[in-house]
Design a protein around this nucleic acid. Structure first.
Lengths: 223, 223
DNA sequence: GACAAATTCAAACAACTGTTTTAATCTGGT
DNA sequence: ACCAGATTAAAACAGTTGTTTGAATTTGTC
């Protein structure tokens, strides 16, 4: 991040194998062990690079970490959940799409993405200095998109308490399968997260939530 | 745990200040930094003990960790959520009570309890060898109690897929406020987790879930 | 092919980790 | 008061960590 190798005129860091390999390997290791427990020797071994390479390319471990986060934010393999949801349609359909997109994204094993979720789990347990920024830039927009959908469904402002509570109810259900994955695997051994199963879970959460929301709209309609 | 100091006839470890202080301090440090990132020097400093004390009383760091977990399991300040729920009443009332108990328990700042939750968050990010046992002994019983309640509400067996999915929907909502606490604090700064607010959140989750469950019961009644 | 910059490498640095050792101190029973 | 065992204390151990150094090597350019 800090040091910019190659002659200064390079527009993007593309033709740098070790730098890219370092980010790739670091993404895996950070996702697996978290920032603190990850060792740069482990990262460099997987990347086939020397330990001094991280100092040369990223100055230090923290620099490598933010490079991984930046890469994880920009390198979009699939569209963001908020974009999926904003593509028109009824609010009900948008909510279903968004729930499915979030669930797939958090449980997919694509390198640039599942890392993303695993790293967030570690950030939750032990926030680094990059935490507020990640929340603001990655989670914030999706949270806002979710509230806009619920705002239409509930006929309340997006920052109304009921809207926020419902947003957390939906997000809580979705995040739970990624966050408490190890626990669920022990409590419900038969649950294999195949793509079909993922769709079934998404359908359940959608039904569960839409019915609850519809009822809450009626009981809170006169406030 | 392994070594049993004091003359062998001591019934319970009560008159041991340093051992108790060690467990107390370790609970805080483990909850804050997790098992790996916690240092025994930090623990011993807070406990006012020598570093060798952990070796003497618990053999090693892992022994101290399981001692903390055991203490956290046995030392029950408040009744377990599963016991609260099992105390009769309608299934609806039981679910409300259980949601409230879980939410309060996971967000309370009592030493022996909030540690419990914080430690679990760390276990989720980086499971230790004690992880399966903690899941089985602490989470498992409450998960089962929740499924029994939902079984009555849904008129399905406790291990039916729908029952389990609903259990995870409820648990996911509850756990979310404890697990994603740092994120929520940034996304919803106005939310202060006062006891009253906690009750309001519990009421919301209860309403949200009960309505969804009632609807799911109707749509799945002929399976 | 030669030169200068960019990049890689092996080695070492200081700081910190969990653990152990050895001696000193405290404790309760006679 | 004495003594054996329980408990504490200071110091050092071996291992790992992130980081740095300085030389070797590669790379692009004239």
């Amino acid at each position: 991040m800090i040091t910019e190798p190659q002659s200064a005129g390079t527009p993007v860091e593309q033709s740098d194998p070790t730098r890219a390999r370092l980010i790739e390997a670091a993404g895996q290791v950070f996702a697996e062990h978290g920032y603190q427990a990850a060792t740069i020797r482990d990262i460099c071994t997987r990347a086939g690079a020397n330990v001094a390479a991280v100092n040369y390319h990223f100055r230090d471990k923290a620099g490598l970490y933010v490079a991984v986060l930046k890469n994880s934010m920009s390198a979009s393999g699939q569209p963001e959940p908020k974009d999926i949801a904003a593509a028109g349609g009824t609010p009900e359909a948008s909510l279903r799409l968004m729930i499915g997109a979030m669930l797939r994204r958090m449980n997919s094993n694509v390198t640039g993405r599942t890392c993303h979720m695993r790293i967030m789990v570690h950030e939750m347990a032990q926030p680094t200095e990059a935490f507020p920024r990640v929340v603001e830039e990655i989670i914030g927009p999706n949270y806002l998109a979710m509230r806009h959908i619920l705002s239409k469904l509930l006929d309340k402002p997006a920052d109304h308490d009921l809207t926020r509570l419902c947003a957390h109810s939906v997000i809580g259900q979705v995040v739970h399968y990624a966050h408490a994955g190890p626990v669920i695997a022990l409590l419900w051994p038969d649950l294999k997260m195949t793509p079909e199963r993922l769709d079934a879970v998404a359908a359940h959460i959608s039904e569960f939530s839409l019915q609850a929301i519809q009822h809450l709209k009626e009981t809170h309609s006169h406030e």
